[in-house]
Every structure is written in structure tokens, then in C-alpha cells.
């Protein structure tokens, strides 16, 4: 009997690797192996041509920490803090915009909801470069929005709203808003309204009702949304590159420039490790929070 169960299990495992194997092998070969190599490159020394050479050293990490030929600078820390702040602020903004939007969609008749949701998602399916380019046109010094800001005295005359931190914030919020809307909608759609009724029967109303009866039920969706927005916003390349300029540089641009204009692979790889470390910290923290709050994901693979 047990041998039959064993051979059954073995044949299942064999079939699993036969069907899923090629795809998994592809991802291992073309993504996991390359990222492993990249992590390794951080420990090499930079040659005159930007490619990694022996001997192994930690010099790229001291470069990351800000030590250079000219002594210590805080430039890298500034970029890191700015990236974290931008990601945090943009995520907060998407939360503030997504909550009313999602509850608006749910308050409509059931047959309208998928269409309203689709309309909120479609812009994110266009190319990121095109989307960001649109904001370049909206925020440049000659655009009406910039004129308005100039006459209100928010920005000095002859300057636009871009390039700069504000433009990056707008671009990130716009790019990632749908990634907050989708998980939040999934949570709000299956909200247990009887709890809200119960709260109302107990004479709770307004903010009290929302924060005690509605909000806790949306937390799993909110946490997934924070992961889906915060992580890509933190590592974004296109938005800071097109809307940011030098004074609003984010980690993504700093990394990319080590592989394009002035090649320094080990330094770039070490910076990438920093980005991955923060990404993983974010993932683990929010994963733990989700588990603690009992957010079960049924259709998760």
C-alpha cells in the first residue's frame, strides 16, 4: 500500500517537473542566475573601462557609503533617503485617492462595477514612457499649470513644475495609482456589511464607524497595495529620469548611470544590492503584517 502511495507521489512529482520544469528552469537561467552574478560582481574591483576585474574587494561598498577620492560625501545617503521619501509620499497619496474611488465603484450597481474598475486600470496599461512624457508636457514651464503656479507664487517665475521633486511625486502617484486600486477593490468588494450594520445599531457613526467596522476589513488589500505601489515606486527609473533632473535624482537613476554613461559595474551592483535589501525588508515586513492580520489569499499560487 505505502509503496503504491510512494510511486504515485513520485509520478506526480515527475509530471510536475515535466510540465512546470521548462518555465521554472527558464526563470532560474535567465533571472535568478543573472541576479546572482550581479550580486557577485559587487565584490569585484572596477577596471578602467568599467568592467569588473579581480581582486575581490569591498571598495564598491565603501563607495556606496559615500567614501571617494575626495573624502566622504552625503550624496548617496541623500539619494537613498529621497527615494524612500518619494516612494512613501507617493504611496500615501495613492491610498488617499484610492479609498474614495474604490468605495465609489462599490456604491454603484453590480453590473457597472467591472467597467468602472477597468476605466481606473486602463491608463496603467499604456507604456510608462508615454505616460510620463504626457506629464512632461503638462508640467513644463510653458504649460498652463505652471503658469498658474507661477502667478500664485508657488514657484519662481520662468520655472516649470518640472524637473523636480514635485514632478516626480506626481509621476509616481499617477503611474502606480491603479496598483493600489485593484487590491483595495478586491478587499472592499467582499466587505462584510453586516458588521457595519451592527456598528450602526450600536450608534456608531461617521469616522468611528469607518475606522472600527470598515477599515479593518480593508487592511489586507491595503497592505498588498502598499507592496505593489511602494516597491516599484522606490525602484522606479523612468519617472525620476524624465521628470526629476539632477536635483531630484533617485536610486534608480543613480544605479542606471553606473551601467550607461560612466560605467562602474561593481559600484552599480553594490547600489543594486542596497535597492534589493530595502525591497526585501519592505516585502518581509508587510508579509508578516498581512499574516498577523489574517489576510488569507485564496487564489495565491
Amino acid at each position: 500500500m505505502s509503496t503504491m502511495v510512494q510511486s504515485e507521489a513520485r509520478s506526480r512529482a515527475w509530471r510536475l517537473w515535466l510540465t512546470s520544469g521548462p518555465g521554472l528552469f527558464w526563470i532560474i537561467l535567465f533571472l535568478l542566475l543573472p541576479s546572482g552574478i550581479m550580486l557577485g560582481i559587487a565584490f569585484f574591483t572596477n577596471s578602467d573601462f568599467g568592467s569588473p576585474v579581480l581582486p575581490l574587494s569591498l571598495s564598491s561598498f565603501s563607495q556606496v557609503a559615500g567614501f571617494g577620492i575626495l573624502g566622504w560625501t552625503s550624496a548617496n545617503f541623500t539619494v537613498l533617503i529621497r527615494s524612500l521619501l518619494q516612494a512613501g509620499i507617493a504611496t500615501t497619496m495613492t491610498i488617499l485617492l484610492a479609498y474614495p474611488l474604490v468605495f465609489f465603484i462599490v456604491s454603484r450597481p453590480a453590473n457597472l462595477r467591472p467597467v468602472l474598475l477597468l476605466f481606473a486600470i486602463v491608463p496603467s496599461w499604456t507604456n510608462q514612457v508615454v505616460r510620463t512624457y504626457a506629464w512632461m508636457q503638462l508640467l513644463n514651464p510653458f504649460a498652463p499649470v505652471s503658469h498658474l503656479a507661477q502667478s500664485l507664487g508657488l514657484i519662481p517665475p520662468h520655472l516649470g513644475l518640472m524637473p523636480g521633486n514635485f514632478a516626480v511625486f506626481i509621476g509616481l502617484t499617477y503611474n502606480y495609482l491603479p496598483y493600489m486600486v485593484v487590491p483595495l477593490y478586491a478587499a472592499v468588494e467582499k466587505l462584510d456589511w453586516t458588521l457595519v450594520e451592527a456598528g450602526r445599531d450600536l450608534y456608531a457613526s461617521g469616522p468611528k464607524l469607518f475606522f472600527n467596522a470598515v477599515f479593518p476589513q480593508t487592511v489586507p488589500g491595503l497592505l498588498s497595495g502598499i507592496i505593489l505601489v511602494g516597491i516599484p515606486a522606490f525602484g522606479d527609473y523612468v519617472v525620476p529620469q524624465l521628470l526629476g533632473g539632477d536635483k531630484a535624482m533617485m536610486l534608480g537613476s543613480l544605479i542606471a548611470s553606473q551601467f550607461t554613461f560612466s560605467p562602474d559595474w561593481p559600484y552599480g551592483a553594490a547600489l543594486t544590492i542596497i535597492m534589493l535589501v530595502f525591497t526585501c525588508i519592505g516585502l518581509v515586513v508587510f508579509r508578516r503584517l498581512t499574516q498577523r492580520l489574517g489576510g488569507g489569499e485564496g487564489a495565491m499560487l
Binding site: L31, M38, I255, F259, M275, T279, L301
Partner: peptide, 19 residues
């Protein structure tokens, strides 16, 4: 399967570039 989805595209792209 989740690695390509969650990895920042920049890290993804640069890993491939080096590889």
C-alpha cells in the same frame, strides 16, 4: 514564479544586461 513579478524592473534589466 513570484521573483520576476516582484523584482524591481531596474534590477531585473541590469541583471540581464550583465548576464
Amino acid at each position: 514564479i513570484y521573483t520576476p513579478i516582484i523584482m524591481p524592473s531596474l534590477v531585473f534589466g541590469i541583471s540581464e544586461l550583465i548576464f
